[in-house]
Design a binder for these strands. Structure first.
Length: 465
RNA sequence: GGAGAGGUGGCAGAGUGGUCGAUUGCGGCGGCUUGCUAAGCCGUUGAGUGGGUUAUUACCCGCUCCCAGGGUUCGAAUCCCUGCCUCUCCGCCA
């Protein structure tokens, strides 16, 4: 949600944002309602003022045992008028709020305007691995290795669900633990600095990119003094109420993409929702900013209407696990914090030796609530394309305003202001798994486990049938 | 699931129809004191919103907010109804 005052003062910027994000809000209509609303408020406030003063007068007369009947009689009509005007105000307020909720966040000035074609590749890391055989898709590999079962998942739950078993289940769990350890700073303590992959494990004489050296996280040069080095791990509810979904911007827009229970609770589509809502309706101490959190949660998405190539395998499923990073920061620092957030997510891909590119999303491609978004797209050799494994965004004060998350700024006489919120995947599991299986596959269908994951798998080096 | 109690400012905790946005204590902030000294004293201290003065900082006036939503009343933190939440006891159960 945007500040109404900001819309009043910058109507053109807001209109441009609506256009660039392909939304349909009518800014002029909102401004018109707003003007009307303020008029009603002034009138109403005057009436209330009258009532308050007269009430005082009545109280005084009664105390002095004097007759107040005349005043009381005269106030009856005022009370009624107030009630009528309050109704009127409500009737204006409701459509105003509803229209306000549909205005998207304003993109940052350096975000390219346009649709998918306007996306900008910011950088690449590594190279697509070369194979001397035709790389298989993850669903074939998974089936052969008996670590992935889509048929039975369909039997149990329906299309768009997956079963991981044996080494597949263990691999996903290892990845989650690995990611959490990296983001919480536990990783290097546990396993030390990882070494490059051993050539001997590759029985088919493959190429460079899969043998990259591993740059370990976090990149300390990115962290200034006084700023947390790592994210705090946290576990949260997967079922949330209406208010929470509204606060992070999923509602009202994405109602059809989510699951709702009979009790009107919602299943979270991302850990961002409960995580960002932790501090809803709170005022934080400025010296506790920035705050970094990481959580691993399942995500539930209806994915209504998406079929075909996209949904083959485990690329797009109704339930999946994701490690999510969220930050609460001082407004002045949020865009710097975004850059750091992206590198934190990248560090996972680098450690796993997966080729990827960083995309700065255009206005038309980024989400409703975001001011600036980077996507990380990792290479899936079997599918022959990049998959979005992470989306990192700065939501500025858009979510904070909806969620009412503030901080007291001692630099400005203790003024209360909205924090900025950021979030990013670090990373989404199924797609990371896809890229891992397809990248590290060998001609016999076995999978080499990246060295950095081996401590999480009792030293296992290979998955084979 | 059954019975009871309760939800007030950063926290604790008064207030049961008329200057109550709310006593008081703690905490925070500012100042004074400097031999009551890991102390004392004084002052100050909520948020939101409409309007005004001042190009900012700031200040002034009004209104709203004592869990949420309705109701009674000239007037509600205070009375009534509904919902949500918390606590205690009982039952049930990973």
């Amino acid at each position: 949600m945007l500040d109404l005052d900001f819309i009043r003062n910058n109507p053109d910027a807001v209109k441009k944002a609506v256009r660039d994000k392909n939304e349909k809000s009518d800014v002029d209509a909102i401004l018109k309602i707003d003007a009307e609303r303020r008029q009603v408020i002034t009138e109403l406030d005057n009436l209330r003022h009258q009532r308050n003063q007269t009430s005082e007068e009545i109280a005084r007369l009664k105390k002095e045992k004097k007759d107040a009947d005349k005043l009381i009689q005269s106030m009856k009509s005022v009370g009624e008028r107030i009630k009528i005007m309050e109704k009127q105000l409500e009737e204006i307020d409701k459509p105003l709020r509803e229209q306000l909720y549909w205005i998207p966040n304003v993109p940052a000035s350096d975000v390219p305007v346009g649709g998918a074609a306007a996306n900008v590749e910011v950088r690449q890391w590594g190279q697509p691995p070369a194979f001397n055989f035709t790389p298989q898709s993850h669903w074939l590999l998974g089936q052969q290795l008996k670590i992935l079962d889509l048929e039975r998942a369909t039997k149990i739950s329906g299309g768009g669900f997956m079963i991981l078993k044996g080494a597949g289940a263990a691999l996903e769990r290892a990845l989650i633990n690995f990611m959490l350890d990296v983001h919480t700073g536990q990783h290097s303590r546990k396993v030390g600095i990882a070494l490059p992959l051993k050539d001997s494990l590759f029985n088919d004489g493959i190429s460079q990119p899969r043998k990259v050296g591993i740059s370990l996280i976090p990149n300390d040069s990115l962290f200034n003094k006084g700023i947390p080095q790592h994210y705090q791990e946290i576990n949260l509810p997967y079922l949330v109420n209406q208010k929470s979904m509204f606060a992070t911007g999923q509602l009202p827009k994405l109602a059809d993409d989510m699951y709702q229970t009979a009790e009107q609770s919602w299943l979270i589509p991302t850990g961002e929702v409960p995580l960002t809502n932790i501090f809803r309706d709170e005022i934080l101490d400025s010296d506790t900013l920035p705050r970094y959190y990481v959580t691993a949660t399942p995500c539930f998405r209806r994915e209504a209407g998406s079929h075909g190539k996209e949904t083959r395998g485990i690329n797009r499923v109704h339930q999946f696990n994701k490690v999510e990073l969220v930050k609460f920061v001082h407004p002045d620092t949020s865009f710097d914090e975004l850059e750091k957030l992206v590198t934190n997510a990248e560090s996972i891909l680098q450690a796993l030796g997966l080729h990827y590119r960083v995309i700065k999303l255009s206005t038309g491609e980024m989400s409703f609530a975001s001011a600036k978004t980077y996507d990380l797209e990792a290479w899936a050799p079997g599918l022959g394309r990049y998959l979005e494994v992470s989306s990192c965004g700065n939501f500025t004060d858009f979510q904070a305003r909806r969620a009412n998350i503030k901080f007291r700024d001692p630099a400005q006489a203790g003024q209360v202001k909205f924090v900025h919120t950021l979030n990013g995947s670090g990373l989404a599991l199924p797609r990371t798994l896809i890229c891992l299986l397809e990248t590290y596959q060998q001609s016999d269908g076995s999978i080499v486990i990246p060295e950095i994951l081996r401590p999480y798998l009792n030293g296992q080096e290979l998955i084979k049938s």
